[in-house]
Write a protein that binds this DNA or RNA. Structure first.
Lengths: 196, 196
DNA sequence: AAAAAATTGTAATGATTAGTACAAAATTAG
DNA sequence: CTAATTTTGTACTAATCATTACAATTTTTT
């Protein structure tokens, strides 16, 4: 039994995806609600009726980005095959993602944290959770690699995970701010050669 | 022979420093001109008479930050003593800087690039120059270390410089966005232990 | 002493913005 | 069919903001 009243003329997922794209390209403050209406195809009435506020829509877009992103990254780390190949695949995925669209810049969640973590506790919480989850997955993958002998036990897995993580975020921030894909590729190569 | 007319009641450097502090704490968009007047002590008339626009003041503040920052970093890399100690000192300096004031978050120039490089060619240019200068100084220091035997020649100096650089920016971005000083210290330690 | 030059504080301006009000439209329930 | 319910588009509101206008003030120049 569906709800009474006039039915919505849009798909929730499509609206959130469209909003996500716009927030990705412009950040939170630089997106006006009018821009959001244009991009999503909704009128103001529909947008506010459905989401209540620009901020609420932003949070939903960020949450979706986080969920699909962390899932993709963890899947890559849990693939079959040599651990080093998986770590390489993760770096390649990040570069692909960060340069996937010339209007986007880098990773939406990093951009959001840089713009808003200071002022927006929900953004801060989400970013920290994302980083923690990625760090855990990295450490686990590296530990597995050490047990199987694929990765040297010279260094603690937690140190290697820390190191990979800061490398990974440095890479992605430079992708967003300096937009130098060639350097990104060199950095990824150097990371793998030196660390493992 | 000084200029005629009523003399200014402020020191240019003090105003730029005050503005820099505010931009550091809040970013560009989130600083209103009224905030800037309060923080610098100038009235609107004086501020616009002296600097022309908020944007012009921002650029001057960023330029000063860049100049003092790149100088400090290069000085650390050119210190006396073992190269590894200098690299450690650079990481320690960054952590110190990023947590120097609880209202500041991370590095002003990185924050600026993340907020504005997309829209503001001057910011993009300045950030790229800063990164390039730091990368050059790193590579040179590492090459010197390899010649003196302090650093293994297993890897190319350019690879090690790339790696250190992405580590460094990852560290600083996480300092800004996640504000976890303990992890920053661990990351710095891991960087030195694994890379050199 | 008067004119010229520069700075200062205040009040106003025009643009932009997130959010609201509300009536028209489209659907379901009875 | 009628009432109830929900969505939709449009016009409006109230706040914020960067910038400008301008008169009063303080200095130098002649």
């Amino acid at each position: 039994m569906s709800k009474s009243g006039r039915p919505r003329e849009f798909k929730d997922t499509a609206v959130i995806d469209a909003a996500m794209e716009l927030f990705w390209e412009n950040g939170y403050e630089a997106c006006s609600t009018e821009d959001l209406c244009k991009q999503t195809g909704l009128g103001r009435g529909s947008l506010y009726n459905a989401y209540g506020s620009k901020h609420e829509l932003y949070q939903q877009a960020l949450l979706r980005y986080h969920e699909t992103g962390i899932q993709a990254q963890i899947e890559i780390l849990n693939q079959q095959g040599p651990i080093k190949d998986r770590l390489r695949a993760l770096l390649d995925w990040a570069i692909q993602e960060d340069f996937s669209n010339e209007n986007r810049r880098g990773c939406l969640l990093i951009n959001a944290a840089m713009e808003r973590a200071q002022r927006d506790p929900a953004v801060e919480r989400l970013f920290k959770r994302h980083v923690d989850l990625l760090e855990q997955a990295l450490q686990q993958a590296i530990e597995t690699g050490q047990l199987s002998g694929e990765i040297s036990r010279t260094h603690q897995a937690s140190d290697l995970a820390h190191l990979f993580l800061s490398n990974y975020y440095g890479l992605r921030v430079l992708n967003a701010a300096a937009q130098n894909r060639e350097r990104a590729v060199q950095m990824a190569k150097a990371t793998l050669e030196v660390l493992f």
